[in-house]
């Protein structure tokens, strides 16, 4: 249809609007193909494990540092306000709620979007413009299944695990700061922290991380797999992989929180 429109020089709405709707259609077809290839055998388990290693293990140093600093900084920033009311004993609970319900999924997803998403966009984009994807196809390998499906599966699996890890490291950071100021013991800190946290909180956070993981993988792979126009296209794919996935993560965050708050209050 796009070819007919281009060759006839006519547009259904306008050039930009048509381009936008065609992009949406391309995303729809990409997702449809993903689910088809993910569900139908053969399955690329070896490659999924390799990608899990890339996404999960190789992100650990950055995630550790970010989670740890987030825990310390959030504790330091919250202490003066609670101290005004003589409620510093509530610090562990407050920090645990903030980290487990909101900060851990969001921080993990944003870090992963920057590190993993851009990497996928650039790697697949580079493979596309240097004909490596075509080379894979002519050697009777399904490049979509091997490159795209495995990467999306890996991010969907690994981001929830990384999220749990971020929460743990964030709480350790918070504990060290509280221990240094209030001399709270490790046991007392964690007992107090988990008073207000329920299984429901973990479930919602894991669900959010699962959605973010899928979003990061799908966006990075979509941008890279359909990259065009040489090295400029590779740069654009990496850039858009980050920008679009960060935007979608915030939209998803507010949507999921809204849905579960409605369920809670309703």
């Amino acid at each position: 249809m796009s070819k007919e429109l281009k060759t006839s020089g006519k547009y259904l709405l306008s050039a930009r609007a048509d381009k936008f709707f065609l992009s949406l259609y391309q995303v729809y077809r990409f997702l449809l193909l993903f689910f088809k290839e993910a569900l139908l055998p053969p399955y690329e388990w070896k490659e999924v494990i390799r990608q899990c290693y890339n996404v999960g293990y190789k992100s650990l140093p950055l995630i550790s540092l970010t989670g740890f600093i987030t825990g310390i900084v959030f504790t330091k920033q919250s202490r003066p306000s609670l101290a005004e009311f003589g409620a510093t004993s509530w610090l562990p609970s407050l920090i645990a709620i903030a980290i487990i319900r909101a900060l851990a999924p969001l921080v993990t997803a944003l870090i992963a979007a920057g590190k993993v998403g851009s990497n996928m966009g650039a790697e697949l984009g580079s493979m596309r413009v240097t004909e490596q994807i075509d080379a894979m196809e002519v050697s009777a390998t399904n490049p979509f299944k091997f490159l795209v499906v495995t990467r999306i599966q890996a991010t969907t699996l690994m981001i929830p695990i990384l999220m749990m890890y971020t929460a743990f490291v964030g709480l350790i950071g918070s504990y060290l700061n509280i221990h240094a100021n209030e001399l709270t013991s490790f046991k007392a800190f964690f007992q107090s922290a988990f008073v207000t946290i329920t299984f429901r909180d973990f479930f919602i956070s894991s669900l959010k991380a699962l959605v973010y993981g899928f979003t990061i993988g799908a966006t990075g792979c979509f941008q890279g797999y359909y990259a065009t126009q040489g090295t400029q296209g590779v740069g654009r794919a990496a850039n858009w992989a980050v920008v679009v996935s960060m935007f979608l993560i915030f939209v998803e965050e507010i949507t999921i929180v809204q849905i579960f708050n409605s369920i809670r209050t309703g």
Binding site: M127, E131, Q132, D134, A135, M136, E137, S139, A140
Partner: peptide, 26 residues
């Protein structure tokens, strides 16, 4: 496709793999 070999203009070797891994991939 198993019966067709395609030699690309820029070779299209997989950058992330060694020569051995490139060759054994198919």
């Amino acid at each position: 496709r198993l019966k067709i070999g395609f030699s690309f203009q820029n070779s299209a070797l997989y950058d992330s793999m060694t020569i051995k891994e490139n060759l054994e991939f198919p």
